[in-house]
Design a protein around this nucleic acid. Structure first.
Lengths: 371, 371
DNA sequence: TTGTAAGCGTTATCAC
DNA sequence: GTGATAACGCTTACAA
C-alpha cells in the first residue's frame, strides 16, 4: 500500500543555485547575468554565451518572487470566473491562458460560484499574491472589490457583458442586444406568444441583460411575457426539461420558447422530443450560446453564437496593453451571430413537411396543445 | 535613510502603503506587525488591535512577492491540464481550485493542449513564478520536466491515471481496470464482437490505459478487436458520429461499441438514432466519463462514472500535505462506477420490447446489419 | 559594455 | 512581548 515516492535525497545536484552562483561561474557580475536575461542585446556575445553555459550547467531557474519584488511586476494575471463547468467559461479561460502564456504572463484562476463575496475574496487573494492585472466576469461586483483594485492601481477588465451605456470597459457580447435580435427574429417570423426559460438573474448581470433584451423586443412589438410562461432555472439540462414541462402544462401554449442558456435549451428540446412535440411545427425553441450538442441533436437548436475563446483572448490583450501603458485599441464588443437551426421557424405548422426530423416515443401518448 | 520616494501627488489616496507604514502608524516595529499577521497569539491584544486599526485605515495589503522572497513560499500551486473544454478537466480544475483556496493557496493554471512540450514550458514558467507545488495530468511527461521538479524539490502529483504498478504517485481512476470491467460486463452479457471508437492515444496515457483495459478483457475471453472495427478519434460528437458510421459500414457489425470518452459515445448514439438503429436491440454503445447529456438523450448512455472534482480535491490535499511535510494518507485510487443505462444490454434482440425508447427517422431508410 | 551597490517589502534571528 | 536588523534573490541606477 505504501508507495510514497521517497525523496532520493542525495543524487540530486545543487538545489539553491542563485544568480550570484551563475555570475561567479561565468566570471561576471550579477548585473551582467541579469542583463543577459532581460536585455540580451546589450551584453556582448561572448559573455552572453559564457553565461548561457553557466546557467545550463548549474540548472539555474530564476526566482520569480525576487524578480517580482525588484521589478514590482509579478507577470501573473488573475481571472475570476463564476464557474468553469457550465457555459462557455472554460473556453474563455483557455483562450485567456493561451494568450497570456504567449506573452510571458501566467494565469491565476479562481471560481466564485456566482457569489460576489467569494469573487471579492479571490480578487483579494490575487492582489496579495501580487497579480499585475485582473479579469472579471460581468460588471457587477462588490464595491470593496473595485475600491481595492483602484487603490492598488491594479488594471482590470470586465468581460461577457458589453453594454454601450456602461461607464467601465467590458469585453464581450452585448447580451441585451443579442437577445433582442433573436426575439425580434422570432417576432418577424410571426410569433406572438413567448415562453421564457430564463437563467437565474441572481448575481448574474449577463442573464439579466438577456432577459431585458427579450422584454425590449417584445415591448417594441407591443407584446409581453405572460407570467404563466415565465420560468427561471440555472444551467442543467434536467432543469430545462422540467421548466419546459411547466410551461406547456398551461394553456394556451406559447408558440416560441426562448431559453437563457445552452443547457436549458437542450433540456427543453429533449423534453419536447420525448413528448412527441414537433419542432418547429408545434413550437419553436431557441437558446443562447452554441455548444456542440446543440447542432447534433435530432433537432438541432437555433441559438446565438459567441466566440468565448475570443473574449478570453481579447481580455488578455487588453490587460497586457494596459500594463504596457499602451492605449488599447481592442474592440470591446464581441459579435454575436444568430445560428438558425431546425428547432425554430414560423409558428403553427407552416413548415414544409419533411424539413425536420420527427421523433416518436412509445411511452407517452402525444400531448397536443390547444390552439 | 528614507527610501520612500515622494509620491507623484495623485488623485488616488495612499497607494504604496507598506508594512513599515503600518508599523509607524501603530507605533510599533515592523516585526510586531508581521507577527500580528502570522502569529497573532504571540502579540498582546492591545497592540494587535492598534495594528488592526492601522491596517484598516491605511488599507494595507501585504506584498506577496516580498513575503514569498522571505519565506521561500509563494502560496501558489500550479496545475497543467491538457484542456479545459473537453472531458472532465474543468470540473477537476474547479475542485482543485476550491480546495486550494480553502487552504489559503492560489491556483496557477495552464493548458497544454495535449502537448508535452507545452506542458513542460508551462511547468517551467510556473517554477520560475515560484509555485510551491504542481499538479499534472497523466504519468507521461518530458524527462526535463520531472528533472526540473526534482532538482528544485518542487512536490508534484500526477492525476487521472492511477496505476498500481506505477512507481510514482498518481491520483485518479485506474483507467485500465475500469475499462476492463466495462468490457467484461459486456462480455458477460453475451457480446463477442466489439467495435471500438478509441480516444487518440497520442500523448494521452489515460486513453492508452483505457484501450489496454478493453484489450485485456477481450484477451481473457479469447477475443480481440477486428482491425475493421477499430477506429480512433479525439473528443467531438461529430467524430463519434463519423467513426460510428465507419464501423457499421463494414460487415458483420460488432454487437457492442466501446467509446473512449463521453463525447465520442454521444456522437455514436446520436448517429445510431438517426439511422434508426435500435439501442440496445441492434447494438450496444457504451462510453467513458459521465456528462449530463448522456443520461438525458432519448437513449441514455451506459458509461463509467468518475468523480473528477474529487480527483482535483484530492490532488490539492495531497500537495498541501506534502508541503507541510505531513505524511499523506490520501487514497490515490478513485473509484469508478459502471452506470448502466439503456444504450447497452445483451446482444441481439433479447431485450423485452418497450424497455427502450425507439427513434424513427424519416430521411433515411433503416440500414440493417447482417447477422 | 560591464561592475558596484542600493534597494524591493517581508520574515526571522537575535537581543532586550 | 517587542524591537533592531540581517537576510531573501534579483533589478537597476550610477559609475567606470
Amino acid at each position: 500500500m505504501d508507495r510514497r515516492k521517497s525523496q532520493p535525497a542525495s543524487p540530486i545536484p545543487p538545489t539553491n543555485v542563485g544568480l550570484r552562483d551563475v555570475a561567479k561561474a561565468a566570471g561576471v557580475s550579477t548585473a551582467t547575468v541579469s542583463r543577459a536575461m532581460n536585455m540580451p542585446e546589450v551584453v556582448s556575445v561572448e559573455l552572453r554565451e559564457r553565461i548561457a553555459t553557466a546557467i545550463r550547467d548549474l540548472g539555474w531557474v530564476p526566482h520569480g518572487a525576487a524578480r517580482a519584488l525588484a521589478t514590482r511586476r509579478s507577470g501573473a494575471i488573475g481571472a475570476v470566473f463564476p464557474t468553469l463547468s457550465h457555459g462557455d467559461f472554460a473556453r474563455a479561460a483557455e483562450g485567456l491562458q493561451g494568450e497570456l502564456t504567449a506573452h510571458g504572463y501566467t494565469l491565476l484562476l479562481g471560481c466564485s460560484q456566482y457569489d460576489l463575496a467569494q469573487e471579492y475574496q479571490l480578487v483579494r487573494q490575487f492582489v496579495e499574491g501580487g497579480v499585475d492585472a485582473i479579469a472579471l466576469v460581468g460588471t457587477t461586483h462588490q464595491t470593496e472589490l473595485t475600491e481595492l483594485l483602484t487603490r492598488r492601481r491594479v488594471p482590470y477588465v470586465n468581460t461577457f457583458n458589453y453594454d454601450p451605456l456602461q461607464q467601465v470597459d467590458c469585453i464581450g457580447p452585448d447580451n441585451r442586444k443579442a437577445m433582442r435580435a433573436l426575439a425580434n427574429h422570432l417576432i418577424a417570423q410571426g410569433h406572438r406568444r413567448f415562453g421564457v426559460i430564463a437563467q437565474s438573474v441572481q448575481n448574474n448581470d449577463r442573464a439579466a441583460a438577456r432577459l431585458q433584451g427579450i422584454r425590449d423586443a417584445l415591448a417594441e412589438a407591443g407584446l409581453s411575457i405572460r407570467p404563466n410562461h415565465f420560468t427561471e432555472g440555472r444551467w442543467s439540462i434536467a432543469e430545462g426539461r422540467a421548466l419546459f414541462s411547466t410551461i406547456i402544462a398551461r394553456n394556451p401554449w406559447p408558440t416560441a420558447i426562448i431559453c437563457g442558456n445552452a443547457f436549458l435549451a437542450v433540456g427543453a428540446v429533449l423534453e419536447a422530443l420525448s413528448r412527441n412535440i414537433k419542432l418547429p411545427g408545434d413550437l419553436s425553441i431557441v437558446g443562447y450560446d452554441d455548444v456542440e450538442i446543440m447542432r447534433e441533436l435530432p433537432v438541432p437548436i437555433t441559438t446565438l453564437r459567441v466566440r468565448s475563446d475570443d473574449v478570453g483572448r481579447r481580455a488578455a490583450n487588453y490587460l497586457i496593453a494596459a500594463l504596457n501603458g499602451r492605449r488599447t485599441d481592442i474592440a470591446l464588443e464581441c459579435d454575436v451571430e444568430i445560428v438558425e437551426r431546425l428547432s425554430s421557424g414560423p409558428p403553427r405548422r407552416r413548415l414544409a413537411a419533411g424539413q425536420h426530423k420527427a421523433f416518436v416515443s412509445g411511452d407517452e401518448g402525444p400531448k397536443r396543445r390547444e390552439l
